[in-house]
Design a protein around this nucleic acid. Structure first.
Lengths: 332, 332
DNA sequence: CCGGATATGGTGAACGTTCAAAAGCGCGCC
DNA sequence: GGCGCGCTTTTGAACGTTCACCATATCCGG
């Protein structure tokens, strides 16, 4: 209300105690008598006191802020906003905030990271879109800057802290589910080799197919991740000698393309069953709705924040990692 | 490199000047002799000095940070990540940063805004997803908290600062373009009335159709924004007496649905021309690629940051607004 | 050669918080 | 009764920066 904000000193005067006692009520309640706590709390309420974050950060030499770089067409696709939501949420629960930043060209990218740390703007970073030979993890370790990756680095993974979702487990689940519904010719539609996460998803499909004793020939299709290419690739597979009756897809974008590619029969039903990955909002809204493998983003974000906060507290500790399992959302 | 960060005092000693002079070199260069500036600059370089943001914020009583609330399935859809990228970019150029936050339930929403301001965590907010009767703008004005809306409020719009894109101009452009290519039966596919922005887009289509003397009967279709519903609605319009030969859509999601709904002829070409809105990455990748109305997000973000920074500097000033024009990206 | 304006740099304090240390106090033990 | 111990509270300082003000040097007209 544009009223001059109350400071801790104002609260102290009103409650008849010292600044430090007010501080203790907020940060170390067990050191303060219940009676005092009550008086201080009521003074806080009356003055609508809220501790100043800059002052706290200055004294504590910590920003309580996590940096996340957002670049224009990120590989996370439509997962990004849901991930950011989950991340902001988990961070807040841990007393942190998420700060967005960009870096124009790759040359300035590392300078930007450095800057944010050295100005005390952030305490650490969450790295997403980890490429197959991403230079960032090694650089961060060298600089002793706390970070956690969303997605496992593909080199020296046990030297970094990361949280990932077991994509192979998700596609394997999808295969199992399709097999239980009688499908035998189950195709995979996803990225060409080299993305890491895409390779995992394809490997999970392959593993499950082998486990069920099913043939892989003519069943694997890869293409860029867009609905048009996916539709074309699906059509190509369907034109083969033993056309698939179902598609397990690397993402919902591939899945939507597969739906388009396989077309509809006289009753308007798609000619093949499609299972997507990521459970984007679109999946539930398609007709018929799309089964999809859901990444547990809230849990992912929780673990990322947890690991990152621990690394900030003790940057020398051995980095930990977490592999979470996705869950198939059946809609049929 | 985990080296104890240099402070302004270290720089001052090395350059043989006072703290204040170093500060002046950074914040008011015209008050310092070129010779001194050089010495100070080289000391800054040698020590890799970067001013501490918390200290600066504390002294300046400003966080140089803009708050943006990210909620799970936001109405911005796949525009969100591109908007956030543009916003973070523009903010950085103005010496600000973007801070993400969430608020679980509507009850705590306003408390969260208050908290962020009173703790000095943010200096102002960017509000997106402005609903038709959104309570937030009025509340912010009452609290004298600086904010700028992305999207114009539908009530008392000249009492608030906002930046919007003229959706009606975009759909009118789309109609003009289709007419010039010989289309006469041009349908609109978008949201049911009541969203504000959706109404604008439909109104633009209607205006342009009238201007060209074209009939609107059987040409307007509205449904929830998902590919499935959009496909069904497109099919319904195509089954009418005078089926449309083209669709102008409220978003790319509607457009993808329309593409699915109108199917393909023997040559694999879609049976109707579709124009989307938002120019999401998917538009360019569809086959054939989708023409789409592109919102000038970098310009939008620039103007939002500009307006917001000005409001932060002078919260009492009369709020300004900007209406930008979108641009049709033709892909045919 | 003086008075006053201007340019440049320096000094102490302040922003609001928490840390480190010490002071006050009640209590039990020898 | 003195002493030490533990619990609660206070005190002074510090985090790193910029503001407000003052000091000194320079310059120019009269």
């Amino acid at each position: 209300m544009a009223r001059p904000t109350a400071t801790i000193a104002d609260v102290a005067v009103l409650a008849g105690v010292s600044r430090q006692t007010v501080s203790n009520v907020l940060n170390a309640p067990q050191r303060v008598t219940p009676a005092t706590t009550v008086r201080v709390q009521s003074a806080i309420q009356k003055l609508e006191y809220r501790p100043n974050r800059s002052a706290r950060n200055l004294r504590a030499r910590a920003s309580h802020t996590i940096g996340f770089r957002i670049n224009s067409p990120g590989g996370l696709g439509d997962l990004l906003d849901r991930f950011l939501h989950a991340l902001a949420n988990s961070a807040q629960a841990a007393g942190y905030h998420v700060l967005l930043f960009t870096s124009a060209d790759p040359q300035t990218e590392f300078a930007t990271y450095d800057d944010l740390v050295q100005t005390g703007t952030v305490d650490g970073f969450v790295l997403a879109d980890i490429g197959i030979a991403d230079p960032r993890p090694a650089w961060f370790v060298r600089r002793r800057i706390p970070f956690v990756c969303f997605g496992q680095p593909r080199r020296n993974r046990d030297e970094y802290a990361w949280v990932d979702v077991d994509g192979g487990h998700g596609t394997a689940q999808a295969v199992d589910s399709l097999v239980s519904r009688g499908h035998r010719r189950i195709a995979y539609l996803g990225w060409p080799p080299g993305t890491g996460y895409g390779d995992d998803r394809q490997a999970g499909w392959r593993r499950a197919m082998r486990r069920h004793g099913l043939s892989l020939t003519g069943m694997a299709g890869t293409c860029p991740q867009d609905a048009g290419s996916a539709a074309a690739t699906a059509r190509r597979l369907l034109a083969g000698k033993t056309p698939p009756t179902a598609f397990v897809c690397g993402s919902d974008t591939f899945a939507i393309g597969a739906r388009i590619g396989c077309g509809a029969d006289a009753a308007g039903q798609p000619r093949a069953t499609v299972v997507g990955f990521d459970d984007s909002p679109a999946a539930a809204f398609l007709t018929p709705p799309l089964s999809s493998v859901r990444q547990p983003l809230p849990a992912v974000a929780d673990r990322i924040v947890d690991l990152l906060v621990r690394r900030i507290a003790d940057p020398g500790a051995r980095p930990e990692s977490v592999l979470l399992r996705p869950e198939l959302v059946r809609r049929d």
